[in-house]
């Protein structure tokens, strides 16, 4: 296993990356996840059934997570966090107290496993609609 602790590109792997098995990139083909991309559990709308385990997960989500031995407890935490409301990548990292780079890899795994999806924020070099900017201004005025 020791040879796995090195990633040709990254050099020595620091401890938090152990939970990504040394990967510093997610397998997902998507470009690097933006800090304000929202992570949404695929089953977000569905209420927990009676007799749920209290993990914040649906039984089918839990089965899927536990069946996949490449997944670690932090993957479960992310799905549970995002089930009640969408959370940005930055918020997930802050909530779990993990470096953003680690969280990105974990979220990428969950996207591949179809347990979560992520929104794509405004592409660079593009400003949102004027109507959205007006909405922001009005919202700020109301603060």
């Amino acid at each position: 296993m020791t040879d796995r602790w090195f990633d040709e590109a990254a050099g020595p792997v620091v401890r938090p990356y152990a939970m990504t098995r040394g990967r510093t990139r997610s397998g997902a083909k998507d470009a690097q996840l933006d800090l304000i991309a929202l992570v949404i559990a695929e089953k977000a709308g569905e209420p927990e059934p009676d007799g749920a385990t209290g993990s914040g997960l649906l039984p089918e989500e839990e089965d899927k997570l536990l069946a996949d031995h490449s997944l670690v407890p932090e993957h479960l935490d992310i799905v549970a966090l995002c089930r009640s409301a969408p959370l940005s990548v930055a918020e997930v990292a802050a909530e779990l107290d993990l470096p953003v780079g680690v969280v990105r890899v974990l979220i990428g795994d969950l996207v591949e496993a179809e347990l979560v999806r992520v929104t794509r924020p405004v592409p660079p070099a593009e400003l949102p609609d004027e109507s959205i900017l007006r909405e922001v201004i009005n919202g700020l005025r109301a603060l």
Binding site: I36, L38, S88, T119, R120, P121, V122, E126, I132
Partner: peptide
């Protein structure tokens, strides 16, 4: 923008983040 790339049909509109 601010939507899932899959352009899902039934998914509720996702919040736009700025």
């Amino acid at each position: 923008f601010g939507r899932s790339k899959r352009g899902g049909t039934t998914a509720p509109a996702e919040p736009v983040t700025l």
